[in-house]
Design a protein around this nucleic acid. Structure first.
Lengths: 147, 147
DNA sequence: CGCGTATATGCGCATATCCGCATAATATGG
DNA sequence: CCATATTATGCGGATATGCGCATATACGCG
């Protein structure tokens, strides 16, 4: 197995995949759990999990477990240390049909409140217990008909 | 063979390779012929040619034949349309040991005038004939002892 | 604990990538 | 035309990547 001399390479490699770029495009809007990403992008659970792991290994994403769900978000260090790269990608995304459609689809799900679980941004784990989230949506598959 | 939905992906894929990033790092300084790139980076002729072709296919490099030599340079359109990406890469290069060493080695070759052929920037093909280049260096292998 | 949901991972397969060797293609000069 | 130098490319092998299937793991709940 090859070890890359620079992590610049692993970052670029991580971003050089259509599905992973779509994921970063979504997470630039807001953190999401794995099942939401599956929903919005229409990719398999396996693919979503694997691509997310790859992006996290490259230092691009961070993850936080909350109950059964794992929320992925852009890594804070990545956002600050590689703002130039992120800005470039956002510019490219604005010109890309599929990435724009993904963003629109995400927005629809947010407005219709059809994402699999509560908004992770609404509160930090410290202030509100996971147990108090009554709006939790269950069973990933109940959403699949909407797609 | 897969066709990528967006050329953003092919650009990132092209850059997501250590040797190709080293090549872009050199060509950001000045255009170079294939044999000079071999010299400075210490890579095989095959590898240099293949990586250059990949970068050119992604729209990152441009090439111009002059006599037996093919000079590669950063594509003008790439530099203007993707300045953000290029700037990011330059910033990363400043922090990368190998890329800095490559730059220093290139500078040494330039100052010692040990590159394989005359400076392509000195003149355009229109103003000065190829035949007038007396400083042409020949036989790629004569330089190899210096490495 | 046992069950259901969400996520991660081992495995095999198809394909892509990277490399070196050999050779072809291009260009110059005698 | 022939020899030489530079660059490109066909080929095969080693490795990496992406995917789906099946299964393991983590978590909350009753």
């Amino acid at each position: 197995m090859r070890i890359y001399a620079s992590t610049t390479i692993s970052r670029l490699k991580a971003l050089a995949d259509p599905t992973r770029l779509r994921i970063v495009n979504l997470l630039a809007v807001r953190p999401l759990c794995v099942c939401s990403i599956e929903q919005v992008l229409g990719v398999s659970q396996t693919a979503a999990s694997r691509h997310l792991a790859r992006l996290q290994a490259a230092g691009i994403l961070d993850s936080e477990r909350r109950a059964q769900w794992v929320y992925y978000s852009l890594d804070e260090g990545f956002v600050t240390d590689h703002a130039g790269l992120l800005d470039y990608l956002k510019g490219e995304a604005a010109d890309d049909v599929q990435l724009r459609e993904d963003g629109a689809r995400l927005e629809q799900h947010v407005e219709a409140d059809t994402l699999c679980a509560a908004d992770p941004e609404a509160s930090t784990p410290d202030t509100v217990s996971v147990l108090s989230l009554e709006t939790t949506r269950t069973k990933r598959n109940t959403q699949k008909e909407y797609v």
